[in-house]
Design a protein around this nucleic acid. Structure first.
Lengths: 68, 68
DNA sequence: TATCAATGTCAACTGTCTTTTACATTAAGG
DNA sequence: CCTTAATGTAAAAGACAGTTGACATTGATA
């Protein structure tokens, strides 16, 4: 599962801490998701998509699949 | 997190076991997701969306939000 | 150089997801 | 009735998600 979180965050010039506060998670969670250590839960993925006003599929994608 | 899994499955006349095999998860996982005991992981949500050829947002939605 | 913000990571912990095994209930068909 | 398929649920265990607290590194700047 890859994601564009770092790019989306950079476009807004937010720190990981900024993003964490908007998502109501810890800074470490944001970092772990950005660095690919683990995937967010489905509810958190929805919060992320809502925050950036994008579909989940526009932020996350499966590298095993050759789509997107 | 609510979902339309039961309806989508019924439209295809699949048993929970049938769906579980297509998703490569246990029947109990399908049942737990359908009955709302827990949400799938993000990777599983993608497999579900791929199987039904729908966006994740067309299958899952947040009852806390008044959209959809 | 000293400081500060931002980032990466680790350990330990709690809670969630998913599994296997198992058992109960219901509905349909012989 | 008896059997079978489908479904709901539970317990125990392992893997994963998310927390707090802590420490190290880097880059910018006073």
């Amino acid at each position: 599962m890859k994601n564009r979180l770092r790019v989306l965050r950079a476009e807004r010039a937010w720190s990981q801490q900024d993003l964490a506060e908007r998502l109501e998670v810890s800074r470490q969670s944001v970092n772990a998701i950005e660095t690919g250590r683990y995937d967010p839960s489905l509810p958190l993925a929805f919060r992320i998509a809502d925050l950036f006003d994008l579909a989940i599929e526009e932020i996350f994608h499966n590298p095993a699949k050759d789509d997107q």
